[in-house]
Every structure is written in C-alpha cells, then in structure tokens.
C-alpha cells in the first residue's frame, strides 16, 4: 500500500502525466511514505519524463507503460490512485475502495467529466484536483479522509427488462 497508480485511460493526458513526473511530485510522495509510482500514460508518451538521476527520484521506484488490459491488478495494489475523470477509471477505483484523486482534463470539449468529478468530490468519495495542485494534494493527505463508496447493485436493470418483457 505504499504505491501510487496513475492512469489516464484509453487516450492521453499530457498535463497529468507531466505533473507526476516532476521532482517536486516525487519528493512529496517520498515525504508521505510512498515508495513506488506506476504510471499508465496512454498516448502521452512524450510527456512522461521522470528525472533520470536516482537522487532526483527521492527513493521512489518508477514503472510505466502505455496501456493495460488489467487495470484492476494495479488499482488493487495501490495505496492511492490518481486518475483522469473517465467513468471506467473512476468506477474501478471506487469499487476497489482505494482513495482516489480525480484530475479533470480541461482540454476536453463538452466537459461533463468535470460534473461527475465535482459531484463525487462534493460527496467526499474522491478528491478532485487540477494537475498543478497534485503536489499540494499529496502534502495535505486529504485523500485519507474519504468515505467508502456504496457497493453497486445492477439487479434493478434485470428487473426492468423483465417487466418490459411481460
């Protein structure tokens, strides 16, 4: 539980990937007791430039890859998940009961991703942040006081289908 998993989902998110490869971010992680950073950077390959020297990595081990078919295996091992505001990533993180910092991609058109991130943050299920606020988020450890998200129950959908078939 001393690892952080960063995920941008099926596209890319340069600002987020850049923010988690800075010295300041790695320093904040190590000060809060994290030892491992795993980054799924999607198409933001060029934005992922962690500092090359071990000194600047502040003792954080860094792994990275573009995509994975099995995001859950990384989410479940993480003590903190930092994800883009896509529904898939948010739901996987909430149901794995991992603390999440959700970062909204301000470049997306018709930004309803901000709606869901802010709604969930308002109910204290996640922390919502801009890329440039991540260092501060880690330092303040607000993600430690989040509420547990209720278990999903898709049963009513089955019942509605059955009612319509009568």
């Amino acid at each position: 539980m001393t690892s952080v998993y960063v995920t941008v989902g099926s596209t890319g998110f340069d600002e987020l990937v850049r923010a988690v490869s800075t010295k300041a971010f790695l320093l904040a992680l190590s000060q809060r007791g994290f030892t491992q950073l795993t980054v799924q950077y999607g198409s933001s390959t060029d934005a992922f430039r962690p500092p090359p020297s071990a000194k600047d990595q502040h003792g954080i081990r860094i792994d990275s890859f573009d995509y994975t078919d099995r995001p859950l295996q990384y989410i479940e091992q993480a003590g903190l998940v930092i994800c883009h505001a896509g529904t898939g990533s948010i739901l996987e993180t909430l149901h794995s009961q991992r603390p999440a910092i959700v970062v909204v991609n301000g470049r997306l058109m018709d930004n309803h991703q901000r709606e869901i991130a802010e709604e969930l943050a308002g109910r204290e299920f996640v922390v919502c942040a801009e890329p440039e606020e991540l260092v501060q988020c880690i330092e303040e450890e607000k993600y430690r006081e989040l509420k547990t998200y209720p278990r999903a129950d898709p049963q009513p959908i089955g019942e509605i289908l059955d009612e319509e078939m009568l």
């Binding site: 529904t87 898939g88 739901l91 999903a152 898709p154 959908i157 089955g158 019942e159 289908l161 059955d162």
Partner: peptide, 21 residues
C-alpha cells in the same frame, strides 16, 4: 460504444439473467 459507456454496460449486464435472455 466507446470506453466509458462500455465500462458501465459491463457492470449493468451483471444484473441480467442470461438464462432468460
């Protein structure tokens, strides 16, 4: 459809009885 919609549909399908459908 794409990404997020499919992720949700995967979850919804768990509420459906495949022995009926």
């Amino acid at each position: 459809g794409s990404g997020g919609h499919t992720a949700e549909m995967v979850r919804l399908m768990h509420g459906i009885d495949f022995e009926r459908y």
